[in-house]
Design a protein around this nucleic acid. Sequence first.
DNA 1: TTGTATGCGTTATCAG
DNA 2: CTGATAACGCATACAA
Lengths: 358, 358
Amino acid sequence: MNKSEQLSDQHAGRSPHENVVKAESDGINLRTIAKTVGVHVSTVSRVLRAGPESAQSETAVRVLEVADRLGYRPNRVAAGLRTSSTQSIGVVSPRLHDVMVSILCHSIEATSRYSGYQMLLSTPPDDMGEQFRSVEFLLSHRVDGLILTSLHRDESVFVDRLRELPIPVLAANRHQGDLLPSVICDDREGGRLATEYLINLGHTRIGIIAGSRHASTGFDRLLGYRDALNAAGIEIDEALITHTDFEAEGGVIGAHSLLSLAQPPTAIFAVNDMAAIGVLGAAQQRGLRVPDELSVIGYNDIPVVAHLPIPLTTVHSPLSQMGEHAVIHLLKAIRGERPISEVLPVSLVVRASTAPPK
Amino acid sequence: MNKSEQLSDQHAGRSPHENVVKAESDGINLRTIAKTVGVHVSTVSRVLRAGPESAQSETAVRVLEVADRLGYRPNRVAAGLRTSSTQSIGVVSPRLHDVMVSILCHSIEATSRYSGYQMLLSTPPDDMGEQFRSVEFLLSHRVDGLILTSLHRDESVFVDRLRELPIPVLAANRHQGDLLPSVICDDREGGRLATEYLINLGHTRIGIIAGSRHASTGFDRLLGYRDALNAAGIEIDEALITHTDFEAEGGVIGAHSLLSLAQPPTAIFAVNDMAAIGVLGAAQQRGLRVPDELSVIGYNDIPVVAHLPIPLTTVHSPLSQMGEHAVIHLLKAIRGERPISEVLPVSLVVRASTAPPK
DNA sequence: TTGTATGCGTTATCAG
DNA sequence: CTGATAACGCATACAA
């Protein structure tokens, strides 16, 4: 598809002479080719842009051949200035160190690259002010569209500003009601699934570590938790609901706080896997055997949890699919289509960290 | 430092009128400002480029004020075309889903952004052919420099091509001898430290899961392993050396293969933490208690391993520092300084997964 | 099918 | 200190 990509093989078995050519290749542009072939720049531009398959004329073939030989690499910066399309998308994604986030970004990048787009990634601190600075930064690089993976709830000021931008903006992972088109996983249903499973095992006192208050993911999973308890006719004890961050440390702290209650829970639902790992650690510290004395359930199904000494029961979020779909939707919006939202289905993965209460 | 960043606050409490202005701000460029103020474009360019602190003349102040009011965002694409410097760096980093890699990229991005540079990230499959395609792709976007975090050993063809590029190229994490400047951690010393510690505990049969053969990290850590055994006068049993990938799955497989030996090891050194987690899982499956019946030591000290039910003894690699220094060195090279290499010191972190053999 | 001319937004050079 | 002009590399409307 892209000229320069196809050319890359050319250099594999090159002769000393071609080496010299290559050394000069920094400055190979349309004009160089035009001069070499003896045609006008615009002709070269047209031929190269049409691609090898549609090389009808004699000149076209010569142009392609010379471009190949000189190792021409199109200058997307110049093209971008002219067409005001840089073939790049900006991604604002705090907390890249979180596996869940890095898997998402991995997928976003792979899908973009496959579509001929370059990802410009910014991973600022997780507050909307910093995120908006990243947006401004990416905008100055004239990205064609934006994906934000870490929106905050109730920050309509920033969302309003995002909506005013001259390029399509898409939310992934976390959403903002209907204010921005989004591709997310069905967090509410996932929270319900996890809680319902624990209830079916016989648990009635179920603690939840609900993550950061500003994340729609944790918020929606908590809604699902309430849904399941309500459906089962179990009264909700607000003391069993605790908020922390999404790190293992938060899981440790949250678990200790829950397990120190007068009537401690027999099961804990952590709304992300890292926190669940922290819960496992806290249980160990308190001499509680998992799952016999405490059931633990996580969320997201990051790869490591299947390989823990006690493999974790968790809710599987299709993270790669979420990234892929986010890019697909964004590219459609860039091409002028009306952006649409999507909610991806999740599923429960039962492993060894859950059992009936004793 | 950057104009547009400072301006972002302007819109926080804007009036309806300014809203209208903002809606048109897509097309705000130097010419717009020049026309509004009544000066020439080049004047505007100079003033804006000089910054607010050096606003001497009356005109300069007016220009700045208008730029502010109109919400001017400099077009780095256009500037890049003119100056042939896009204020961006390309990063080729396969395996972004690996926490170790994502922490490194997180740090690279943060340092770049802090320095006014944008990171263009590509995370292709981990083979040099794909990586070189990514390089070509980034080159077409005219990045000012490149960082590669996943070089392969003995692929001098590709390294030669990298050396011929018209921009500075730096290796991070993995190196290629002295062929490319690099910022890495002291993997050989880390491997030695880990092995020496096990030897001092009394272990003599120490298995090693050495990762992929093409990674200098695993290779160097294996060298350190040999160093320590040699120094202790322990003969090296090649049967105790196994190669897998860097995933938990590989650790499981490697551990089972080692523990099935006629004379199984009493300790296993996995050259990365995820593999070590896999070893813990395999031990569990075989009913081996860690650390009493099997000592396990990992590598890198990714955050999760401190919170495992059996906190992992491991070698701490300064990953964030590595990313930071890589960017600093690369930016120096971009400014024309001679690129230098660096080897960062590592340290042993003793936790609960290691003990004397029974 | 090919050539001509123009402009994308910015910066740099030079003259005033 | 400011203004005029050209150029970066490419794409396109238009004319031939």
